[in-house]
Design a protein around this nucleic acid. Structure first.
Length: 689
DNA sequence: ACGCCACCTATTTTT
DNA sequence: TAGGTGGCGT
C-alpha cells in the first residue's frame, strides 16, 4: 500500500513526479484504476474517494503514457459544471501538452456533436435548433389545443420524455400502450416528432435518442465513431438512463477503452429515469469487466463516515463498500430536536455564528441542506434576521430569463429559418403590432405550403392578402430579418448580436416593460453579460466558431462559465439534498429530518424508500468536519399545524457515534453517551404530551 | 396589455 | 397557508 507519497514505489512512474508534487498523490486502488488498460473498467467510488481525480489522471495517463491522441478520448459527465471542473483540472495536469480534440463534455453535448456531424441521416438540415423544455411545451400546447383546450400537457411532455429516454419510437409507443389516454399520447408523440422535424429542431431528449438511432441503424456511422472514440470515460455512471447506456454500449461495443466511475449509494435520480442497475448490467454486456473499489474517503472524519456507513448498510447492496478515513474520529455528529421550524432555524443560525467565531473560516464553508425547497423559508428568514449572507440554490437560471431567451430566439431564427417557435417568440418582442390575426393567417398560409413562418412572411403571395398596415409591418420585420441573416456568414457572432440588440432597441423595450428600474437594470446587465460571453467565446475560438455552433451550445448552457459571482461572494449555502451531490463543506446542517419529509410521504416503501435513504446518505457525506441534523416537533403543512415524528432514518444511525441535544426540554445540555434509542423513546413521550 | 380574483395545489431537476 | 396560474374584465 502506498498512502504515503515519499519513497513510494507505486507512483505512476517518475514522469509523473513533476505534476504529482503540485497535485495530490493517488492511493493504490486509484493508481490501479488509472493504469488499468486492456479491459473495460468499473470504478466503484464511494463519496469523497477521489473519483474525479481518477478520471482526470487516467486521461492524463492515456495521453502521456499510452500515446493516445487526445482526439480519441471522450470524457462524459452529467452537468456542465462537472465538465468544466474536469477541464480545469486536466489543464493543470497536462500543462504544455496539447489537448486538441479531447472531448470533455456532457452526454447531451456529445450527442449534439454527433448529430451535427450526421444530421443528414436524420433528415435534419444544418443550423437546426435545440428546443428547451419550455419551447417544447409550447409546441405541445399548440398540438393539443386542436384536440381539446384543457389537455394535460405536462403529463404528455413527461410521457414523451420517458419514451425518448427509453429509446422508444412513436411507432413502438403506439403498440405498447395500455389505454386510450396513452394511445392518444403516443399519437401526439408521433405528431410532435414530425413537428420538430418540420421546425428543423430537436429537444433535449433527442440529443441522446437520435445518436442512438444513428449508431444502431448505420454501420458505417457506428464504425466511424467507434474509431474516433477509443477511450470513453463516464463520471457519475449510476445516473445514466437507458438511452445513455445504449449510447455508451454502441460507442464502445465491448472494446477495452471503457472506464466508468460511479457510486450506487449516491443514485438519487431514479425518479427521472436514471438506472442504477446499469452498474450490474455492465458485467453482463462487458464480460471481461474489471472492478476496482475506492473506499478511502479524503473528505470527512471517521465519525461522519461511520454514521453514513451505518445508515446505508440498511440498503441492499450488490457490492459491499466501507468508507474509511485516516483523518481521525472527529466531533460527534449532532441531532437537534426542535419545537418548530422557526426554532430549528434559530438554532442553526446560532450554531453558524458560534462556529464561525470559533473557526474563523468563511460562511461559504457552511451549508444547510433539506429535502424540499419550501423548507428553506424559515431558514432564510432567520439568516436575514442575523444579517448572515446566504446563497440559495435553485431558482431561475440565467438561460431561463426572458431577456436571454428572447435574444437567443433571434439568433436561433437567423441560423435556422425554419424555427417557428423562435419566430413566434420574437415576432412581437419588442412590440411590432403584428397581431394574432396576422399571425393566424401567416400560420395557415405556411402550413398549406409546407413553409416556415419566416419564409412565408417573405412571400408576396401571402403579404398581398393582408391589409396595408399589417402588410407593411410584417414586410418590414421580415426584410430586416433577412438583412440580418445575410450578415451571419461574415460578421462575428458577438457583433451581430449587438447589432440585433441595437436595431430592435431592446434596451428601451426592457426599460419600458420592467416593473421597476431595478429589475430593468438587472435585465440589462444580463444582456450585457450575454454579449461579453459571446465576445469572449468568439475570441477564444479564433472566430472559427460560427453562429450556429454557439447558438446550439447555448441551449445546452455548456459554453458558459458562471462561477465568477459564486466564488467572490462569501455566503452560507442553502440547497436541496439533490443539489448538494458532488459538493463538500466543512460544516453541514441537515434540516427537517422528519417522517413525511425525509423519507418523503410519497416515497415510503420499496425502492423509493431506499432512494430516500441514499439522499440522506448523500447529505451526510457532504460534511468534512461538522455535521448537525435537526427536526421539528410540529410544522405547518397545507395550512394545518401538524405534529411531526423524527425521521426513521435517525434510528438507523450509530448511536454511539452521535449526540442528541435536548432542545425540546429546553435544557441546553447534551447527553453524549446515552443511547439514542432510549433517548428517542423519551422524546416521543415528551412529544405525545 | 394589464390587473384582479378565484381556484388549485403542494418533492427532488440536469440537459 | 401561500404562492402560482388561468380566466376575465377593463
Amino acid at each position: 500500500m502506498c498512502t504515503h507519497p515519499l519513497g513510494n514505489p507505486c507512483l505512476l512512474g517518475v514522469q509523473y513526479a513533476a505534476f504529482m508534487t503540485t497535485q495530490s498523490f493517488l492511493n493504490q486502488p486509484q493508481i490501479d484504476a488509472v493504469e488499468h488498460l486492456g479491459s473495460p473498467l468499473l470504478v466503484l467510488a464511494g463519496a469523497g474517494s477521489g473519483k474525479t481525480r481518477v478520471i482526470t489522471f487516467k486521461i492524463a495517463h492515456l495521453i502521456r503514457e499510452g500515446g493516445i491522441a487526445p482526439r480519441n478520448i471522450a470524457a462524459v459527465t452529467f452537468t456542465n459544471k462537472a465538465a468544466r471542473e474536469m477541464k480545469e483540472r486536466l489543464a493543470g495536469l497536462l500543462e504544455g501538452k496539447t489537448t486538441h480534440g479531447l472531448m470533455v463534455c456532457t452526454f447531451h453535448s456529445l450527442g449534439l456533436t454527433m448529430i451535427r456531424a450526421e444530421h443528414r441521416h436524420l433528415g435534419y438540415r444544418r443550423g437546426f435548433s435545440i428546443l428547451d423544455p419550455q419551447d417544447s411545451e409550447t409546441v405541445l400546447r399548440e398540438l393539443t389545443q386542436k384536440e381539446s383546450s384543457d389537455y394535460d400537457v405536462p403529463a404528455l411532455q413527461w410521457r414523451i420524455s420517458t419514451w425518448k429516454n427509453n429509446i422508444i419510437s412513436p411507432q413502438q409507443a403506439q403498440t405498447q400502450v395500455e389505454d386510450d389516454t396513452s394511445f392518444n399520447q403516443a399519437k401526439l408523440y408521433a405528431r410532435y416528432q414530425r413537428q420538430l422535424l418540420a421546425y428543423n429542431a430537436l429537444d433535449f431528449d433527442d440529443l441522446i435518442m437520435q445518436p442512438v438511432h444513428l449508431l444502431s441503424q448505420y454501420a458505417d456511422i457506428r464504425q466511424r465513431w467507434q474509431h474516433s472514440i477509443r477511450h470513453l470515460l463516464i463520471d457519475e455512471y449510476q445516473d445514466t438512463n437507458v438511452g445513455q447506456y445504449l449510447l455508451m454500449k454502441l460507442l464502445m461495443d465491448k472494446r477495452d477503452g471503457l472506464t466508468v466511475v460511479g457510486d450506487d449509494d449516491q443514485s438519487i435520480y431514479a425518479w427521472r429515469g436514471a438506472r442504477p442497475e446499469n452498474i450490474s448490467l455492465l458485467g453482463r454486456d462487458f464480460p471481461n469487466l474489471k472492478i476496482i473499489k475506492l473506499e478511502q474517503n479524503y473528505r470527512s472524519n471517521d465519525r461522519i463516515l461511520k454514521t453514513a456507513n451505518r445508515l446505508i448498510a440498511n440498503n441492499p447492496h450488490l457490492f459491499e463498500k466501507q468508507l474509511w478515513s485516516d483523518q481521525g474520529l472527529g466531533d460527534f455528529p449532532r441531532i437537534i430536536p426542535c419545537k418548530s421550524p422557526q426554532q430549528e432555524a434559530q438554532h442553526i443560525v446560532g450554531d453558524i455564528l458560534r462556529l464561525r467565531f470559533k473557526r474563523r473560516d468563511n460562511f461559504s464553508d457552511y451549508a444547510i441542506l433539506y429535502r424540499s425547497n419550501h423548507l428553506a423559508k424559515p431558514l432564510e428568514q432567520a439568516l436575514r434576521e442575523h444579517h448572515i449572507p446566504y446563497k440559495l440554490s435553485g431558482g431561475m437560471s440565467f438561460f431561463e430569463r426572458a431577456e436571454i431567451k428572447d435574444l437567443i430566439a433571434y439568433l436561433r431564427l437567423l441560423v435556422n429559418p425554419e424555427d417557428d417557435p423562435a419566430f413566434l417568440r420574437i415576432v412581437n418582442t419588442p412590440r411590432r403590432e403584428i397581431g394574432p390575426a396576422t399571425l393566424e393567417k401567416l400560420g395557415i398560409y405556411a402550413t398549406q405550403r409546407n413553409k416556415s413562418l419566416f419564409m412565408a412572411s417573405q412571400e408576396l403571395g401571402f403579404t398581398q392578402q393582408l391589409p396595408t398596415h399589417a402588410r407593411l409591418r410584417l414586410e418590414q420585420f421580415s426584410s430586416w430579418l433577412q438583412a440580418m441573416k445575410n450578415r451571419t456568414a461574415n460578421e462575428n457572432p458577438a457583433n451581430l448580436t449587438r447589432r440585433v440588440i441595437d436595431d430592435i432597441a431592446y434596451a428601451d423595450w426592457l426599460r419600458n416593460t420592467s416593473k421597476n428600474q431595478k429589475t430593468a437594470q438587472k435585465r440589462l446587465e444580463n444582456v450585457q453579460e450575454l454579449l461579453d460571453w459571446m465576445a469572449r467565446l468568439t475570441a477564444e475560438k479564433n472566430a472559427s466558431a460560427g453562429l450556429s455552433d454557439i447558438v446550439g451550445h447555448m441551449a445546452l448552457l455548456d459554453i458558459i462559465d458562471r462561477h465568477q459571482d459564486e466564488r467572490t461572494i462569501d455566503a452560507v449555502n442553502l440547497m436541496t439534498l439533490h443539489a448538494a451531490k458532488g459538493l463538500e463543506f466543512s460544516c453541514v446542517w441537515i434540516a427537517g429530518l422528519e417522517e413525511e419529509l425525509l423519507p418523503h410521504h410519497s416515497s415510503l416503501d420499496g425502492a423509493q424508500l431506499e432512494e430516500e435513504r441514499r439522499l440522506f446518505y448523500v447529505g451526510i457525506t457532504r460534511a468534512k468536519e461538522h455535521l448537525t441534523m435537526s427536526f421539528a416537533a410540529s410544522r405547518t403543512r397545507y395550512g394545518e399545524q401538524l405534529a411531526c415524528r423524527p425521521s426513521r432514518f435517525l434510528d438507523e444511525l450509530p448511536q454511539e457515534h452521535i449526540v442528541w441535544a435536548d432542545e425540546v426540554t429546553r435544557t441546553n445540555s447534551t447527553k453524549t453517551r446515552e443511547t439514542g434509542k432510549a433517548h428517542l423513546a423519551n422524546l416521543k413521550a415528551i412529544l405525545d404530551h
